[in-house]
């Protein structure tokens, strides 16, 4: 009896072993980032040692990504998962994690990176009240447009890479060092470019360029959205127009995926200019993180009459 049971188990186990994917890191560390900006920094740190996949497409609204089943497969095979960590992905990451059943990237595992960890976020909610809009409890999650914050995120990513793949830790250290140095070098240049615009007031569509403008000493005085995540309302816009006139706001900054109707309307009535500013590297025109910030800095400078050709 016992032997027959054993006999029938052997082929079963063999079958399971044959079909199950290996759970040790492959040649290249498989890294999954929720958004393209995090993916770009991961590529900068990991270089050729890592294979990075971004889930959200670079030009889409990162709050509303579909939890497609194909992502479950990607997350299932990940050695490292990098997420923003400030609820930006709250609407779509949890079902992927549940479906992926991957202990290597479960919360608390060395392969899980919360990019916001170690950063002092803006607008941390002191009170949770959704009548104030979709406020993220941990703070404004759009911190990646601040290059100084990106350096800290790169450090967290290095730490995860080293923890998961000790043998190539020196590579990751080198990648981090190179990234930090590149950011530092470029930052001086960017700050010089935008120095004449220090104190300039701008209006954005959503609260997603706050970190960027704060870094360069500019001021976001209001948003087209009356409250985070709530589309522009006529009431709000009729208040916004005189306010922008009074404060002499000359620039309205929106992301590529936003509708143009309301920004154009406000621009028409205030004489301000609408500038479409990408928030994510796209792998083509803005291949990496530095190229993205560089592009954005030059666009802002050009839009406000600074040539942006100081380099």
């Amino acid at each position: 009896m016992r032997t027959t049971i054993r006999r029938s188990f052997v082929p079963l186990l063999a079958l399971v072993a044959l079909f199950s994917t290996p759970s040790y890191p492959a040649d290249e560390l498989k890294v999954v980032a929720t958004t393209a900006d995090l993916a770009a920094v991961a590529r900068a740190v990991g270089g050729d040692d890592v294979e990075v996949t971004a889930l959200a497409r670079p030009a889409e609204d990162p709050h509303f990504v579909d939890a497609k089943p194909s992502f479950i497969r990607v997350v299932n095979q990940a050695d490292v998962l990098i997420e923003g960590g400030a609820s930006l992905e709250a609407g779509w990451l949890p079902p992927l994690l549940e479906g992926a059943r991957n202990p290597r990237i479960s919360a608390g595992a060395p392969g899980r990176v919360f990019a916001a960890q170690g950063l002092a976020l803006l607008e941390v909610a002191t009170q949770l009240d959704r009548s104030m809009g979709d406020v993220h409890p941990q703070g404004n999650p759009h911190f990646m447009l601040d290059p100084v914050a990106a350096k800290t995120v790169a450090e967290s990513i290095r730490t995860a890479f080293c923890a998961v793949d000790r043998t190539r830790c020196s590579d990751y250290e080198a990648g981090l060092r190179a990234f930090r140095e590149a950011v530092d070098a470029a930052l001086a240049d960017w700050q010089a470019t935008l120095a004449p615009l220090r104190g300039t007031k701008v209006v954005t569509y959503h609260k997603d360029f706050d970190y960027f403008f704060q870094r360069f000493g500019m001021q976001v005085v209001d948003t087209l959205e009356p409250k985070p995540g709530i589309p522009p309302s006529p009431t709000h816009l009729t208040e916004l127009v005189p306010k922008m006139r009074a404060e002499q706001v000359r620039l309205i900054v929106i992301e590529p995926f936003r509708e143009r109707g309301n920004p154009d309307f406000v621009a028409q009535h205030t004489g301000a200019r609408v500038l479409v500013l990408p928030a994510m590297p796209d792998g083509q025109d803005r291949p990496d993180y530095l190229a993205l910030i560089d592009y954005d800095v030059r666009q802002v400078a050009a839009a406000l009459g600074q040539t942006g050709a100081t380099r």
Binding site: A120, L122, V124, A188
Partner: peptide
């Protein structure tokens, strides 16, 4: 090279997570 720490606003606690 760049001494600036991550953005710190007076009203936000440092460890949101």
């Amino acid at each position: 090279a760049v001494p600036a720490p991550p953005p710190r606003a007076p009203w936000s606690p440092a460890q949101p997570m």
